[in-house]
Design a protein around this nucleic acid. Structure first.
Lengths: 343, 343
DNA sequence: CTGAAAGCGCTAACAA
DNA sequence: TTGTTAGCGCTTTCAG
């Protein structure tokens, strides 16, 4: 760690001025290819690395993106979101500064303040499951993209999963296998996913000429234990459904357990499909669970790329791209939990 | 976002010099309580917030800690580690800059380089499961703490779970319930956890006067499907064990499935305990799985606090604290998978 | 095409 | 106890 080499060392070694070095390295200015190359190779030889604090201070671009999320800690999806965001960020030579607010508004406020003090170039305001949110006061004027969250107004870009589409994909998977009596294990929280998936379920049945039997719809909270009980209600009926669509994988696990307790084999006696594709669960279940994947990685990636776009046009007020609200496609991942209905 | 207020605005408004403001806010220097208070209240009124790029550039302290990890994305534990680290960091007025290297050395090198360019004050070099690592060349001279990782030399602080202790806790839990024939479903990877837990298993049996029956030990990779087969080997014996200790929760899930296939009830016919306490799984399994928790949150917290300690004494070469290598205790979380052996 | 000079907003010597 | 003065290492006008 002998004294870090600075731009002036490079200038001295290359026999040019500070300006020339700066231009050569950043690509700005009009330099002859010869000098540019020479400066670059000298810099590389000296193992020069810029001090981002200094360049950020001067240029007003820190190359840092703030990532504000509610509960990175308690959800297993966070990793994929983060990875997507981070890999996209690296392509832009950005680095992520991440804060977990634990859904505590006070802590959220302080966290955003901290990010702003570090002069982040923009912020990804993320939720770990699809929610409608109010963007915090502190973020007005800061380039922001919402991830797995949306808000009433359309002044801000956002990306969420296409909940209705996900439900449609799942239900059509069952219909394609020949099922007509399809139960739905919904959840009870008043969130976009609940409404979207339920709407998608109903709409898809109707679109295929299947009448919606409201008694085939139950709801529980998203724990396996509660889902077990909800599934039992449907499976104990004499006219039980031949297939179950589950709000998410944890609920599907409850359905598996209820089926097992009753001696029903999956998929021979009962087909099951759900949404999440939470691999640790879906792969581990016996048989493997067919599940529609939520595009966590892709949402993370999209959010950063969108922010890049909006940041690029920053300053030029005119050609600033209009904010975009995206509902992202959710692909089906098949394993072994769906088969034809028993005759 | 009217032009951000700077330290000079505060100085002007308070009728003092820049220095005085700086001192008042940072707590340095010798100011009368009166001026200090006045400056602070003026700063608060103006909504002043320091520019960390500027202060970092000058003071050589960015207040950023780099967090380098192998696979945040693919492990569900990452969240807890991150949360522990982050909450501890916030207490020190630090913020975390996180990079996921996907275990790719090239990408790791570039990521560390990026962190260093941003002049992070220190680095947490983390793994998502206990590993022995070689600390990258680029980190020599940078204050670093290893998290869930250890290295040969003792010049660097590190924290890992006490693998042997965790196994002891698990096995003693079974012994306390009355079991003497206890099988072990190990895993096949050559990692510290594999060796530590196996050693702990053997040592604990011996300590309780139980002879180790090597035929009661099997190994599989850490997927539920493989574990199913490994468990079958033990459960199909006429003298099958009355209890199974499993390397981790996913393997335990395989054991559950093997038991279920054979009509063995848990815990009546077979008791099961494992290590991980991966809640989404352990809570969802039927019955709930007794599992020894890995102290993810606590390791994250410890790593940051340790770094704080070492950073504080930085510069003063003499009173620099000696590096510390910690093996952290792993507490048992009981649910319903352990009972007395069948008679 | 290249260089000199002026700061970005703050902190740390040093004076007063 | 407070103020003055130099920079931290870089980018960016603006001249040559």
């Amino acid at each position: 760690m002998s004294k870090r080499v600075g731009i002036r060392d490079v200038a001295a070694a290359a026999g040019v001025s500070l300006t020339t070095v700066s231009h050569a390295l950043s690509g700005a200015g009009q330099l002859s290819d010869a000098t540019r190359e020479r400066v670059r190779s000298v810099a590389a030889d000296l193992n020069y690395a810029p001090n981002r604090l200094a360049s950020g201070l001067r240029s007003k671009r820190s190359q840092i993106i703030g990532f504000v999320s509610d509960e990175i800690s308690t959800t297993p999806y966070a990793g994929r979101v983060l990875l997507g965001a981070q890999e996209a960020a690296a392509k832009n030579d950005w680095v992520l500064m991440i804060v977990n607010t634990s859904a505590d508004p006070r802590f959220e406020g302080r966290s955003i303040e901290a990010l702003l003090q570090h002069r982040v170039d923009g912020i990804i305001y993320a939720r770990m499951y699809h929610q409608t949110v109010a963007v915090p006061e502190a973020l007005v004027g800061v380039p922001t993209v919402l991830l797995d969250a949306s808000t009433g107004n359309d002044h801000i870009s956002s990306v969420v999963p296409d909940e209705e589409g996900a439900a449609r994909t799942a239900v059509e998977h069952l219909i394609a296998a020949g099922h007509r009596r399809i139960g739905y294990l919904s959840n009870v929280d008043d969130i976009p996913a609940t409404r979207g998936r339920l709407d998608g379920y109903r709409a898809t049945l109707r679109a295929h000429g299947i009448e919606v039997d409201e008694t085939l719809i139950t709801a529980s909270d998203s724990t396996t234990a509660s889902a077990r009980a909800a599934a039992a209600l449907l499976l104990d009926r004499s006219d039980r459904p031949t297939a179950l669509f589950c709000f998410n994988d944890r609920i599907a696990m409850g359905a598996y357990q209820a089926a097992q307790t009753r001696g029903l084999r999956i998929p021979d006696d009962l087909s099951i499909v759900s949404i999440d594709n939470f691999e640790i669960l879906a792969d581990a279940m016996l048989p493997g669970l067919d599940s529609v994947a939520l595009p966590h990685y892709e949402m993370g990636q999209w959010a950063i790329e969108r922010l890049a776009l909006e940041l690029q046009a920053d300053g030029d007020d005119d050609d600033a791209p209009a904010p975009q609200q995206i509902r992202m496609h959710c692909p089906l991942v098949t394993r072994q939990s769906v088969g034809p209905p028993p005759h």
